[in-house]
Structure formats: structure tokens, C-alpha cells
Design a protein around this nucleic acid. Structure first.
Lengths: 119, 119
DNA sequence: ATGATACATCAACGAACATTGATGTGTCAA
DNA sequence: TTGACACATCAATGTTCGTTGATGTATCAT
């Protein structure tokens, strides 16, 4: 269901797209912000985001299938929590693609680069 | 057209959703990966991602309106480049919401916390 | 056993999104 | 000044997404 985006040499662009898609909706972002404070059961989330039950369930599924959250069943309740490793992978993906501030626009080399820049 | 997501005290969740939406598509991710290597003109991108001209133009607009890229017109060519500050803001958003690895699931407190955790 | 609670899942629908082909606009070379 | 080039934009269409209301399932208290 969930696949890691990184192999030793390359990035699985499809999985990266799913990661970001999972965070492209305001309701899901609200859920993530709540889960940033720790594990929550569905009924807590439901009240906090004021969403109909099936609607919240849909969004939780999107987050789950993207690998951003996991659920843990306990009796009648289902507790969701964030997967910190995945948030970390996403952040790393962004920082790795970020040119150094002030880098040469054309070649992306750092601001300190001299001589061999943009030949 | 583009608004920063952060104010002094709170996060503009709508802008955050637009950021992530911009990266929720494989074609746009490919463009971002190319731009990570430095500024590119549209025709270079077009060849590299093998997309029809109007299709690429559409995706560039999404990226531009989300604030992830800027364009610079020069003669007949239009050069696009990433905005590193925004990629940095996105990465920061993720890391700020990431519970410490090994933190208490329920309360989100760090692994080192003792005694007062989960009372 | 019965009913209530806490969910997941499904089908149906509208809304948002992506793709395509056509047209428009500015720039440049001949 | 004509034509080619490098785009942006638009209208039409198909596809994916999100919402709603209904139904299903497991758990628990009575």
C-alpha cells in the first residue's frame, strides 16, 4: 500500500506526487496539524475539524495510503498518528532540490563559485 | 498572485495547500527537478519532459501561481527558475509538524521526556 | 440478545483538474 | 513586412477528486 520514494539511486516520482497530493487539501492539512500534537482517535479529529464522519474517513484514507499516517485499532477506537520518517523524507526532498540562496540562476552553482560559473 | 503562508503568528493553510498541490503532479515534479539544476527556458523544459506546449504552459502556470517558480522574459524566450525561499518554507512547515522520532505517540513529547509524559 | 458507539466502505453526484487542439501575441531574422 | 519561432491563453472534453447519504462491521455496555 505504501512504498518508500527513495531507492539507493533514484527517486520514485509517483510516490512523491502522492505524498504532496495528500497535503494538497485543507481538511487533510488540519488533520496533520492536529496529529502533530500526538496521536488522536477518529472521533477526536472529527470534532476538531467539524467534518462529517464519512468525509473524514475518506481523508484519513488518503493520508494513510500516501504513507503519511498510520492507524492503530484499540477496541472501538482507531488512533491515527503521523509517520515522522515520511515527513522528514518530504522535507529532505525539498531541501535537496532547493538551489542555494543567491546561486547563479542559470547553472544553479553556489554564490561563492567563481570562474567556472556559467561558461 | 502569490501570498506568503506564514504571518508572525499563524499559518495560511490555504496557501500551504496550494504549495503542496503544485507538487502533486508528476509532470510538475519533473519540471521542478530540472529547475533544481538552474534556470531553464520553456523550450528546454518542453523537450526534457516531452509535453505538448500548451500542456507544459499550463503546469508552469500552476507552479508560478503557487509561488514556487518565477519567470524572466528575455527576447523570445521565457526563463523559469525555482524560488528557494519557498521550498525552504515548505520544508520548514513539514519539519515543524514532525513529532520527534520515538516521541510518545499520544502526547507527542520527546523520547527523553520523563515523569510528566502522558499523565 | 439488543442496541449503541466508532468506525470503514460504497454509490452517486458535482466540482476541480489535466489534456488537447486552436488561436492570439510579441520577437526576431531575412 | 513577411514568416518563423517561442511562448500564453482559451474552449472543449475527459478524468480525477471531494462530498453526501446509506449501508456494513466490529466492539462494547446492558
Amino acid at each position: 500500500m505504501y512504498h518508500a520514494a527513495m531507492t539507493t539511486t533514484e527517486t520514485n516520482i509517483g510516490q512523491v506526487a502522492r505524498w504532496f497530493h495528500a497535503l494538497s487539501d485543507e481538511t487533510r492539512l488540519r488533520v496533520v496539524e492536529l496529529l502533530a500534537g500526538g496521536e488522536r482517535c477518529v472521533c477526536e479529529l472529527q470534532e476538531a475539524v467539524a467534518a462529517a464522519q464519512s468525509r473524514l474517513s475518506f481523508h484519513l484514507r488518503v493520508l494513510r495510503e500516501a504513507g503519511l499516517v498510520v492507524d492503530r485499532r484499540q477496541g472501538r477506537w482507531n488512533y491515527y498518528s503521523l509517520r515522522p520518517e515520511v515527513l522528514e523524507e518530504m522535507a529532505a526532498y525539498l531541501r535537496e532540490r532547493k538551489p542555494a540562496d543567491g546561486a547563479c540562476a542559470a547553472c544553479g552553482r553556489g554564490a561563492g563559485a567563481q570562474g567556472e560559473c556559467c561558461d
